[in-house]
């Protein structure tokens, strides 16, 4: 390189640098740009052996050991809020819960607590959902099915909430090392659908009827505090009418699917398609997306499995 070429290049670089300086975006503008998050991954398993579906979907995400480590305390929160037998699809299927608990135990969990703050009388729902018997059938004293103790709800400020600024939450869930949410896909007139995020209603205290005014935002807000390490959507059978109570077999549609993931918004977005809906049809999915709780665009969601 001779001197002339060198000077030319220096000049060009200088111009480039100057232009670069001018072109550099202000920090605020940068913050507004969409963050390049890795697209959320869900894992779906299809089939009629419900225990295998749970195993396969979690395996596709890397196995339960990725979520639960040896010596940890786990709270599993299935939907077992309604006094209905398993075939009515008002509660999570007992086999699904049992398999999740078994996987936690295999992963070395010190204690696995299964609980729900129910809508009907808890004694009845725990028994008639079949979940109590299913979990106790494991015969491992690390796994317990517990009734909610009303003394253990603690009030918290919800940071970033738009409507539900303060509410009470279950201490055991807040203190547990790991929290696993198992929801069943059902219709629900006010929320339209109840999927994984709506299932968090069973982890909160207080007069929950009051939350139904402005329900969609409230569901999104409570998910700011309650962030399960793993969500499982039980779509082995779904309730397509008369939800969330159900009560007739004709309302139940067998889908033979279990979907697992760590992004509840993505999971619920997928869940809407089970009912022939779109994610944007469900208010709390949109509100949760707006709060940055996850991805609702189906195109950006990676689905593993079958």
């Amino acid at each position: 390189m001779n001197r002339r070429e060198f000077l030319k290049q220096v000049a060009a670089l200088g111009v480039l640098a100057g232009a670069g300086r001018i072109l550099t975006m202000p920090a605020e503008l940068l913050a507004m740009a969409p963050k390049k998050k890795p697209s959320p991954t869900l894992a779906r398993a299809t089939g009629t052996n419900y225990a295998h579906l749970v195993g396969d979907s979690i395996q596709a995400l890397g196995g339960m050991k990725k979520f639960v480590h040896s010596g940890e305390t786990v709270v599993v929160k299935p939907n077992m809020a309604w006094d209905q037998p398993p075939e009515m699809a008002a509660n999570v299927h007992p086999i699904v819960v049992r398999k999740v608990v078994e996987l936690c135990l295999e992963a070395g969990a010190k204690k696995v607590k299964v609980l729900d703050r129910t809508c009907h009388d808890a004694r009845r729902t725990y028994v008639n959902s079949g979940i109590k018997a299913a979990v106790e059938g494991i015969k491992d004293n690390r796994a317990v099915v517990e009734f909610v103790d009303e003394r253990r709800f603690v009030e918290l400020d919800i940071e970033g909430a738009k409507a539900l600024k303060r509410w009470s939450f279950y201490q055991d869930i807040l203190e547990a090392d790991r929290f696993i949410n198992i929801a069943i896909a059902k219709t629900h007139s006010e929320a339209k659908l109840t999927l994984t995020m709506k299932n968090m209603m069973g982890a909160i205290g207080g007069w929950r009827g009051r939350i139904h005014v402005g329900l969609q935002q409230n569901i999104a807000d409570m998910n700011l505090v309650l962030r399960p390490d793993l969500h499982i959507l039980d779509a082995t059978r779904i309730l397509t009418q008369n939800g969330p109570t159900g009560g007739k077999l004709e309302y139940v549609k067998v889908k033979n699917q279990v979907i697992a993931g760590t992004d509840p918004v993505a999971l619920d977005a997928y869940g809407t398609t089970l009912f022939g809906m779109q994610p944007q049809d469900i208010g709390h999915i949109v509100k949760a997306y707006e709060l940055g709780l996850g991805e609702m665009d189906l195109k950006n969601i990676k689905m593993l499995g079958t």
Binding site: S189, E190, H212, V213, L215, N242, T245, G246, G247, K248
Partner: peptide, 22 residues
């Protein structure tokens, strides 16, 4: 009723109604 007076959603009553159809 909240819905009739304030024009805001609620439907807690409908949610819990146990009969089928509701």
């Amino acid at each position: 009723c909240i819905v009739y007076t304030e024009g805001r959603g609620c439907l807690v009553c409908e949610e819990h109604c146990p009969v089928a159809p509701k």
